[in-house]
């Protein structure tokens, strides 16, 4: 569709344009060195040039904590609260996070589609932005480059003087209605380079992982892994959740609450009676990596890792998913050379 140009000087006007018509969520500074999606009020606080946000836009469709139902213990009845549609414009989403939304869609909308997720998800419109890969990004290795417009309604590509605007859907065109932009015909800037890479394509990775079940890397990683669950909780494609009942102090009412959970946490597979099916941290690490590069990928043909680098950037023990995977690849290649 049409391509136009948004000068840097008009970016604030553009945000104001969106904000007066829609609820807008965009990246803001959080803490000293981080960014997070928040609802915009001050357009000047929006940061379109950022390396990554702490949590992805996942939090709007699958909230970290959510009440599934309220119950009355006197009558033994439960009611599900009304789920509010998000119905918002997400400004400044990176391509890997949009790829992650698709994966969440797959989980929550195939098989038995979940209402809570769908109600929140269906009104969302996305304005993607390009980014400059930092030392943690490796999205290129899973086929998602910084200019990938898949999933965006409008996409903004960084240009020295502003942003090249691609309108990709009818919804995107509607977002720009009333905000005139000059057309743009120049070629896009050159591809940005990633500094982090996984050195084989996804299809052979599945095969390598298949053969790496007993690889020493799992135990080696377990020595430093603190099993804190951070890697799961920051991952934009992790969707596992736990459900627990809360009861009011008065003892007559309560609610069933769900919250994000993580397969790196020891209690994740615990069943009544106390058996834990992945007791060892090494087994949990392997499960996590296989979840991202094998199990769901075997079923769908898509890697379930989008290369955002969050798990590595946030790991409290400095464990790198790229290092683990490359180690497996290197050892598998060495093995092949020896046997060949």
């Amino acid at each position: 569709m049409a391509q136009s140009f948004l000068e840097q000087a008009r970016v604030l006007d553009f945000i104001v344009h969106l904000q007066t018509r829609h609820t807008v969520y965009a990246p803001h500074r959080r803490g000293q060195r981080s960014f997070a999606f928040e609802k915009t009020s001050d357009p000047a606080a929006v940061e379109l040039d950022y390396p990554r946000v702490l949590g992805s836009v996942k939090k709007y469709f699958l909230p970290p904590r959510e009440t599934l139902m309220d119950f009355d213990l006197k009558t033994d009845t439960a009611t599900a609260p009304q789920v509010e549609p998000v119905n918002a414009v997400f400004l400044g989403v990176h391509s890997y996070d949009l790829a992650a939304v698709k994966r969440l869609d797959h989980n929550f909308l195939t098989g038995k589609p979940e209402r809570n997720y769908l109600v929140r998800r269906q009104g969302a419109r996305f304005i993607g932005v390009s980014y400059v890969p930092d030392k943690f990004h490796f999205a290129g290795s899973v086929g998602i480059d910084p200019y990938d417009m898949t999933g965006s309604d409008v996409f903004l590509t960084r240009h020295p003087d502003g942003w090249i605007v691609d309108v990709l859907t009818g919804e995107g065109a509607a977002l720009l209605q009333g905000f005139a932009l000059p057309p743009h015909a120049l070629p896009k800037p050159k591809r940005e380079h990633f500094t982090q890479h996984i050195y084989v394509p996804q299809d052979s990775l599945g095969r390598i992982l298949e053969a790496s079940y007993d690889h020493p890397v799992w135990n080696e990683t377990a020595r430093s892994c603190l099993s804190c669950g951070t890697c799961n909780l920051v991952c934009p494609t992790c969707y596992c959740f736990n459900v627990e009942d809360q009861v009011a102090v008065t003892g007559d009412s309560g609610s069933r609450e769900r919250s994000w959970d993580g397969c790196m946490l020891r209690g994740f597979t615990e069943v009544a009676g106390g058996e834990v099916f992945r007791e060892k941290s090494a087994a949990r690490q392997r499960h996590r990596i296989y979840r991202k590069f094998k199990y769901l990928s075997d079923a769908t043909g898509q890697p379930w890792c989008v290369g955002c680098g969050r798990c590595t950037a946030a790991c409290t023990a400095g464990i790198s998913i790229v290092d683990i995977v490359n180690r497996l690849i290197r050892d598998a290649e060495r093995e092949e050379k020896i046997t060949a």
Binding site: Q32, G55, L233
Partner: peptide
């Protein structure tokens, strides 16, 4: 489970990121 779990649910910037040390994990 670790303090990190709730800390991430609350979308805090990691304390280590700010140059401090933390026993949360």
């Amino acid at each position: 489970q670790s303090v990190c779990v709730e800390c991430k649910l609350n979308e805090n910037e990691c304390v280590f990121e700010r140059g401090m040390i933390c026993l949360g994990p």
